[in-house]
């Protein structure tokens, strides 16, 4: 018997160029990730909106946020902020069980935010720049409106739904690429919430003082802090908040729409509130 190994043709490997396959797959994956994360974050945040507030409160109470606040060291400021928050809650018709707790933070960070369980944090770095009570009420009203419309839990719900999906496929594909794309698509949702809260803040500013003078000051402060006329402002897609200029203009637009007065007497801040 004769044994032979003839020369085989070189065809046991696909001839397709690897870069072609690479680009097709990469584009396909990015489109898939964007579509899936937008769908999931919308679905997650919509569903999270149905979580009863009492359940949200229970979860939030597992973590004692008051340990971070400086309310005890500054009782006068804390009481004043809390008193304003209670007035605003009434003006915004918050449900009975939706109690707002304001936490004063003695920190130079220029920020204020609302989180789960009706907890609103106000930082000294932002408060010290406010010129009058009307602007402070706009800021507080904006954060309280977030709680009213359940934005914290909805944003968590959307974020968690996307995060779970990304972890699930992250093991088979590169998770850094997927994570970044996922983040961009959840940010866009929050911007709608900001606009909604701005409008609610204007409503309660008008109902408490009879005019909305001083409200737009808040966003002028942000614009100045960012360095003037928006030269260094990040492009709108990458920013959680709508652009400052747009928000300042929205005060005039809504004043015309709802027949609010844009002039009126400004209420000064109490003496102990000067930093």
């Amino acid at each position: 018997m004769e044994y032979k190994n003839p020369k085989l043709p070189e065809n046991n490997v696909s001839k397709e160029h690897p870069l072609k396959e690479f680009s097709t797959l990469l584009i396909g994956t990015l489109v898939l990730v964007v579509v899936v994360s937008i769908t999931l974050s919308l679905a997650g945040s919509t569903l999270a909106g149905y979580i009863p507030y009492s359940a949200e409160k229970k979860v939030a109470s597992l973590y004692d946020v008051s340990t971070h606040s400086d309310n005890e060291r500054f009782p006068e400021i804390a009481a004043y902020l809390q008193d304003l928050a209670d007035k605003i809650s009434k003006a915004q018709n918050l449900p009975e069980d939706m109690k707002i707790t304001v936490h004063y933070m003695d920190s130079p960070t220029m920020n204020a935010f609302a989180t789960l369980g009706g907890n609103v944090f106000m930082f000294k770095g932002l408060l010290e720049r406010l010129p009058n009570e009307n602007t402070l009420v706009t800021l507080l009203g904006h954060e309280i409106a977030h709680v009213k419309y359940r934005h914290p839990i909805r944003s968590f719900g959307g974020g968690i739904a996307v995060a779970i999906a990304m972890t699930a496929i992250g093991s088979s594909a590169d998770s850094t690429v997927l994570g970044d794309a996922g983040l961009l698509s959840t940010l866009q949702f929050s911007r709608k919430m900001e606009t909604q809260s701005d409008l609610e803040a204007m409503h309660n500013l008008n109902s408490l003082y009879g005019h909305i003078n001083g409200g737009a000051e808040l966003f002028k402060i942000f614009r100045e802090a960012r360095g003037g006329d928006g030269g260094s402002e990040p492009s709108e897609f990458f920013s959680t908040h709508p652009q400052d200029e747009k928000r300042i203009n929205s005060f005039t637009e809504n004043a015309n729409k709802y027949n609010w007065s844009e002039t009126g007497e400004l209420t000064p801040l109490p003496d102990f509130f000067k930093f």
Binding site: P18, E21, L25, G28, A173, D174
Partner: peptide
């Protein structure tokens, strides 16, 4: 490329 291919299925060339 193989990681991306795992999402869709098919030949991992």
């Amino acid at each position: 490329v193989a990681g991306l291919r795992n999402l869709f299925g098919g030949k991992i060339t």
